[in-house]
Design a protein around this nucleic acid. Sequence first.
DNA 1: GCCAACGTTGGC
DNA 2: GCCAACGTTGGC
Length: 137
Amino acid sequence: MAYWLFKSEPSTWGWQDQLAKGDAGEEWDGVRNYQARNNMRLMKIGDKGFFYHSQTEKAVVGIVEVSALAHPDSTTDDERWDCVDIRAVKSMPKPVTLEMCKADLRLKDMVLVNNTRLSVQPVSESEWRIICTLGGL
DNA sequence: GCCAACGTTGGC
DNA sequence: GCCAACGTTGGC
């Protein structure tokens, strides 16, 4: 079991949109970055991920799981780009903000804190537990 | 709205 | 294969 973090602008695709899809899930398409794509290719069915809102909120707002392995991105003919499908699992009782992550020394090595621009990131198991706790789970 | 960080592109 | 120019992302 691996853990990940998916970043999205709420104005483009937000947590409410993801929730509305329910168990059917949705393609995490539109990624045009090799590192992010490579991370998606490493994902397995059932891997868990945080759903992070960038820009306005800057907070982890929910938990998702991978429901389909990497496959060609349907929004482009360019065969370089793959994406996985994810479905909403649960909402965070309390959103965990970027500010909280930065303030917690245990999270100082998180990709989210150090490489703000990567849209699909790995999360370590300890980071996962810390953020779940901060989020009230 | 600005700017820093970073990735990609293209000329040489 | 290097590096300058450019575009994009995301925090502030």
